[in-house]
Computed example of a mutant assay.
Amino acid sequence: MFDRFTDPARRAVMRAGILTMNAGRTSLATDLLLLGLAEEHPMPHLPDPAALRPHIDTGRTRELLAAIGIDVEEVRRRTRHGLDDPRLWRLERSRVAFLRVTLSGPMGVLPLRMHARKAIEVALWKPGPVTGERLLWGLLADAANGSAAILREAGADVRELVRVAGIPVHRATSG
């Protein structure tokens, strides 16, 4: 599935996988997909990762280790060098269970939760490359996944993000 992804979009999904494993989660959800997108593919009106983090559960490792003077990001840089190599990561649909999509890499295999899978499916829906804007479209296409709420809480103008991502807006007409 990654063959249609641009490098920044692929890195965003890979980063979401790393964030998921660092948080101790067993499956990839849309909140960390959104954070991975913000970290790897900044775009106009998308909040920076520091503004998003307080609204997303990324685990408490960073703050617990910081309390004793350990910079967890430096530890991760030193011990997990090379994990972001795109050749080591795969995004695959199960041949047996068609709705099961997994992200696999050097740290393990993560199934995508329903809403994260739907976001990827929407991004892949149109022909052509999957860009960060298309991932954003996938995240915003389903209000039930919570991405729009996280963006609003972080101070983003969601209507402007919809415009930037090129998401078509259908307005009801009176008649």
Score class of each variant (00 low, 15 high):
1 M>R: 03
4 R>K: 04
6 T>R: 06
6 T>V: 07
7 D>G: 03
7 D>I: 14
8 P>V: 11
9 A>L: 02
9 A>T: 09
10 R>L: 12
11 R>N: 09
12 A>F: 08
12 A>Y: 05
14 M>E: 04
14 M>V: 15
14 M>H: 00
15 R>C: 12
16 A>F: 01
19 L>K: 10
19 L>I: 06
19 L>W: 05
21 M>V: 15
22 N>L: 14
22 N>C: 10
23 A>E: 00
24 G>N: 02
25 R>N: 11
26 T>E: 15
28 L>C: 10
28 L>G: 10
30 T>Q: 00
30 T>L: 04
31 D>W: 02
32 L>D: 01
33 L>S: 01
34 L>D: 02
34 L>N: 02
35 L>W: 00
36 G>C: 06
37 L>R: 02
38 A>M: 03
39 E>H: 04
40 E>C: 12
43 M>V: 10
44 P>R: 13
48 D>A: 11
49 P>H: 02
51 A>Y: 00
51 A>S: 13
52 L>H: 01
55 H>I: 04
57 D>A: 12
57 D>K: 08
58 T>M: 02
58 T>G: 01
59 G>L: 08
59 G>I: 08
60 R>V: 12
63 E>Y: 10
65 L>T: 11
65 L>P: 00
65 L>R: 07
67 A>V: 04
67 A>C: 04
69 G>L: 05
69 G>A: 01
71 D>E: 10
72 V>E: 13
72 V>H: 11
73 E>K: 08
74 E>N: 07
75 V>N: 02
75 V>M: 07
77 R>T: 06
78 R>Y: 11
80 R>Q: 15
81 H>D: 14
81 H>R: 15
82 G>L: 05
82 G>M: 03
83 L>G: 06
87 R>N: 13
87 R>D: 15
87 R>V: 09
88 L>M: 12
88 L>W: 01
89 W>A: 07
90 R>V: 06
90 R>Y: 08
91 L>Q: 03
92 E>L: 13
93 R>V: 13
93 R>S: 13
98 F>C: 00
99 L>I: 14
100 R>L: 15
100 R>P: 00
101 V>D: 00
101 V>Y: 12
101 V>Q: 08
101 V>S: 03
102 T>K: 12
103 L>N: 08
103 L>H: 07
104 S>E: 13
104 S>L: 09
104 S>M: 12
104 S>P: 01
105 G>C: 09
105 G>M: 02
105 G>F: 09
107 M>Q: 15
109 V>G: 03
109 V>I: 15
109 V>L: 12
112 L>F: 11
114 M>P: 00
114 M>A: 14
115 H>Y: 11
116 A>T: 04
116 A>W: 11
117 R>A: 15
118 K>W: 12
118 K>I: 14
118 K>H: 14
120 I>Q: 07
121 E>F: 09
121 E>V: 14
121 E>W: 10
122 V>N: 01
122 V>P: 04
124 L>H: 05
125 W>K: 13
125 W>Q: 14
125 W>C: 10
126 K>T: 11
126 K>V: 09
127 P>M: 07
130 V>F: 10
130 V>P: 03
131 T>Y: 07
131 T>W: 04
131 T>I: 05
134 R>S: 13
135 L>H: 09
135 L>R: 06
135 L>I: 13
136 L>W: 02
136 L>E: 10
136 L>A: 06
137 W>S: 14
137 W>I: 08
138 G>W: 09
138 G>F: 07
138 G>P: 07
140 L>W: 08
143 A>N: 09
